[in-house]
């Protein structure tokens, strides 16, 4: 895997004022790999995820995507972001556009696809996430789980090399979590490269190639799910797992 790295972070540091939220982060994600990032609140896992497409700037270190370093700003950065899809905790569907228009917008604006072509692809993707009948609704008319599936379809419409998920199920009602996780499992099976920040341990066990455990801005463990959940090495991870698995 290491020979074909898609995302490579080396010595990444970030501060919020005096708070050192990312401390010497080294992380490599291979092509087709699913990496789940877990950890307590404030451990820096969301920041790590957002740094990969530069929604968060970093103070030092390097982040490379498919062999090229992240550009600073402007058009080059926009081009790179088009290659990396992102799914947010709060969905962030464009509130003034229909479901179909949400998915078509970036392919038309960024990839300069024709309207018919973009619409056809958008309908295919909606069918794939099981929402083919909702194309003409507005985001506010959908449930949270449906909105998040549309958001995944919107990200997929750009044919990204990798997908970043920033707590995709944390804002959902419990009964809607599974419909979103199922779509994500399917993507993982199809070989999509994914970085997933989540609290869903079941998903981590069943879909991840690696589990990265973060605490206080550092990567504490980086292992297979099997190893991590059955025999965590660090006290911090043992403590965390005992709190979330025993209730």
């Amino acid at each position: 895997m290491a020979g074909d790295a898609l995302i490579e972070m080396r010595g990444v540091n970030k501060y919020y004022g005096k708070l050192h939220v990312l401390q010497d982060i080294d992380l490599t994600v291979g092509r087709g790999e699913v990496v789940v990032v877990i950890g307590p609140s404030g451990s820096g896992k969301s920041t790590l995820c957002r740094a990969i497409n530069r929604l968060e700037t970093i103070e030092s270190g390097t982040i490379e995507l498919d062999g090229s370093p992240l550009p600073e700003e402007g058009k080059a950065l926009a081009r790179l972001r088009a290659e990396v899809g992102m799914v947010f905790q709060s969905f962030n569907l464009f509130a003034h556009k229909t479901v179909l228009a949400n998915i078509m917008l970036a392919p038309m604006k960024v990839r300069k696809k024709k309207k018919e072509e973009a619409a056809q692809r958008a309908r295919e993707l909606l069918d794939r996430v099981g929402l083919g009948s909702q194309a003409d609704k507005y985001p506010a008319q959908l449930s949270g789980g449906q909105q998040q599936r549309v958001a995944i379809a919107r990200a997929l419409a750009m044919d990204p090399k990798a997908l970043l998920f920033d707590e995709p199920t944390s804002a959902l009602d419990p009964e809607m979590i599974n419909e979103v996780l199922e779509v994500m499992r399917q993507l993982a099976r199809e070989g999509m490269t994914m970085v997933v920040v989540t609290h869903e341990m079941g998903f981590a066990r069943s879909a991840a190639n690696r589990v990265v455990f973060m605490a206080d801005g550092r990567i504490v463990e980086d292992r297979t799910p099997e190893d991590f959940f059955t025999a965590p090495r660090s006290e911090r991870a043992k403590d965390f797992l005992s709190k979330i698995l025993k209730h």
């Binding site: 972001r81 290659e83 899809g85 962030n92 970036a106 604006k109 960024v110 958001a151």
Partner: peptide, 17 residues
């Protein structure tokens, strides 16, 4: 909401877009 702009940027849209 800030997330609207973040979602647009994460799709590769430029600032004017």
């Amino acid at each position: 909401p800030v997330g609207q702009g973040e979602a647009a940027r994460s799709l590769g849209m430029t600032f004017p877009q």
